[in-house]
Design a protein around this nucleic acid. Structure first.
Lengths: 234, 234
DNA sequence: CCGACTTTGTGCATGCGTTCACAAAGGCTT
DNA sequence: AAGCCTTTGTGAACGCATGCACAAAGTCGG
């Protein structure tokens, strides 16, 4: 099963931090490609991606030696290599579960299709929403979840359901064979070994901003006494 | 300006990684509080938050010694301390710019108000959308951006605009005094020193999942030849 | 064909984050 | 009051990520 040795210096263990930045590089490269730019130096690409050039070079070096010293990187070639490394040269079928405001926003987001992600199914439990057409797809009832996931060979599910429904829905998609989940519900999902979960939490992002904002304004004001005032109104 | 010494062992330099987890602990604590649970051990709270207990204790120790050995942490007290540290004991006025699908989803998201965030203004450039009422607020034209940010004392802006509009809008909110930005547009924003930007990118999250998904299936398939086939259809 | 110039790829040092393991500290029972 | 039990808070070791700085490797002009 392991064929690690076939590609020379290429080390299969790409650091997680690097993986998280590759999509950013990829987008910057696409922008350059649109402007018919053929080659780019690490300095330029790093600037476009908002990182420093040493980090960029080290990141790319994990994929292999795809640059030319004295010149830089060929844009198209690098696009291909990063795409392949990320698994974007194949198509992934994605299901969105939950079509409230957020689910609809996701269903209509153009950035998916252009990156090898195909919206394959939309699922909801609300009979008012089921049957509605969104972005060319008909919303199916969640009762058909298992069947649809199997039929469409879906391996990635996006959960945009209420917090209380998240874990049960998660359990169902996992037992149907989904091994990657993008979770928008504000809960910590429990999943078996081998299933990846990524979480996007709008509220958490704002709280982190608030922390730094407060810091700029002079740090948290309170001392012990404030707590007592806060709990009983005396 | 620095008054680090007033609070004993309390060290003002809380690691960024810890800050990012505090909101998760806070949510877990709120859940416990709803169930009228008075005290919680680091082991239990860690399980609820999806981290290990040593990390949780170290994180909390950065805020101070708020636990009782042999017992655990008092839920309500810890809620207050974390809230205060994150700056949630004061209200923050937030503006949402861009009310497409995503902007509407954010405007309707209940998780904000309950954490000290007040939706203070909704702004859009589209005359069809301007004037619409969403969640009790009227969408204003983006021409009034500067005035509204000043009037409502807005320090946090959420950008849910198209990629092409993101940088110009960013520049405008920054020059109006906003110092924290939550950016949903798929671009790297350039901001002056002292302005914090956090980015949420749906497409990037999926790409990271795809990487791991592919890894599970046996790693990237391609070798050199595939690239040549991919660029010219021969 | 050679030498100057550019830019990559990486060894190394530093700093941050995580985890282990345990002493210190409190409560509870007898 | 004394000892046992539980759980915190933290010192120390380890590992990962970042950034510097430079040798290696390539291009290009003459």
């Amino acid at each position: 099963m392991t064929r690690r040795s076939t590609l020379g210096a290429r080390n299969r263990g790409i650091p997680e931090a690097t993986v998280a930045r590759l999509p950013v590089y990829l987008r910057a490269l696409h922008t350059l490609a649109e402007r018919d730019i053929v080659t780019v130096s690490s300095e330029e690409l790093a600037a476009a991606a908002g990182v420093n050039s040493a980090k960029l070079r080290k990141d790319l070096s994990h994929l292999g030696s795809y640059g030319t010293r004295g010149v830089g990187y060929e844009v198209q070639y690098l696009v291909y290599q990063i795409s392949r490394e990320l698994g974007l040269t194949q198509d992934w079928s994605v299901a969105i579960v939950g079509l409230g405001n957020l689910g609809r926003a996701l269903a209509g987001y153009g950035g998916f299709a252009s990156r090898g992600f195909r919206m394959a199914a939309l699922l909801d439990a609300d009979p008012v929403i089921v049957g509605e057409r969104i972005n060319g797809l008909t919303v199916e009832h969640i009762d058909k979840l298992e069947q649809i996931i199997a039929d469409c060979a879906i391996s990635i599910a996006v959960l945009a359901v209420p917090a209380s429904a998240a874990q049960p829905v998660c359990d169902r998609v996992v037992s149907s064979g989904v091994t990657s989940i993008l979770n928008f519900a504000p809960v910590v999902l429990a999943v078996p070994e081998g299933v990846d979960v990524r979480k996007v939490d709008l509220s958490i992002e704002l709280q982190i901003l608030a922390f730094h904002e407060q810091r700029k304004a002079g740090g948290p004001a309170g001392v012990e006494q404030e707590y007592l005032e806060a709990v009983d109104g005396s």
